[in-house]
């Protein structure tokens, strides 16, 4: 009997997969906790007052409870929630929650896909916020612009006002690629052909050539993507 129990425990333990959880942004975790705390306290105060003080709503105590629940806590909670939500929307899972993104997400997870997006994602060249890193410009107006664009996308997706196939609205800004690659040793002296990038950086900066002159698109059209 004991042996049987031991066997069951062993099988159960083997079934429990140990999953790697990447370290989270501490600021985001705390902002989320603070937002949740403020929201829950505000909801509790309002409910408590409306239920238990319903006959005495005009008394000072009830008014103070409602003041804190309706005016004091919701204002910071509103701003923190918007911030937390926008930060969480940088995550790949958020982008993939729109079904129009499924082909891109499938390609990125395809171990045999040769596309640039898949290579970057598979090898974790970017540690987190994979979509966001390549699809937002640098500087405060770049990230703010990307968030505004993201909000428009969310609106269009929710109200189904988008058209397929999805296209880039404007040429891709190569400075986003260069921000990581320009100063890397592998870019300056590629392993296979150390002279391949000779003078490339200058030409790209002068707009005389593009990364795409030699490299494939990060997200090629469907028929050129692996597994499509």
């Amino acid at each position: 009997m004991i042996q049987l129990l031991m066997l069951a425990v062993t099988v159960f333990a083997q079934q429990q997969e140990v999953e790697f959880v990447p370290p989270q942004d501490i600021a985001l975790v705390w902002a989320k906790r603070i937002a949740l705390l403020m929201i829950v306290v505000a909801i509790t105060l309002i409910l408590h007052t409306l239920i238990f003080h319903r006959h005495r709503l005009m008394e000072h105590r009830a008014k103070w409870f409602l003041f804190v629940g309706i005016c004091v806590l919701p204002i910071p909670a509103l701003f923190v929630s918007i911030g937390v939500g926008l930060e969480q929307s940088k995550d790949v899972t958020f982008c993939n929650s729109c079904h129009t993104m499924d082909p891109f997400f499938d390609d990125m997870n395809n171990m045999s896909s040769p596309t640039l997006a898949a290579l970057h994602y598979r090898n974790r060249y970017i540690q987190r916020e994979h979509c966001w890193t390549c699809h937002s410009d640098y500087g405060i107006f770049g990230t703010a612009g990307a968030k505004m664009d993201g909000l428009k996308h969310v609106y269009r997706y929710t109200f189904r006002t988008y058209r397929l196939p999805i296209r880039m609205r404007h040429p891709y800004d190569l400075s986003i690629c260069l921000n990581c690659h320009a100063e890397s040793a592998l870019f300056r002296r590629p392993r296979n052909d150390p002279e391949a990038h000779e003078g490339v950086l200058e030409s790209v900066l002068k707009n005389e050539m593009s990364c795409l002159t030699c490299h494939e698109l990060a997200h090629p059209p469907g028929e050129e993507r692996s597994g499509q």
């Binding site: 989320k32 937002a35 949740l36 929201i39 829950v40 505000a42 909801i43 309002i46 919701p74 909670a77 509103l78 929630s81 937390v84 939500g85 969480q88 929307s89 995550d91 958020f94 929650s97 729109c98 969310v154 997706y157 929710t158």
Partner: peptide, 13 residues
Amino acid sequence: LLTALIYVLYSTP
């Protein structure tokens, strides 16, 4: 506040 709670816990479009 309920919509904020849902949004913070489950961020989806």
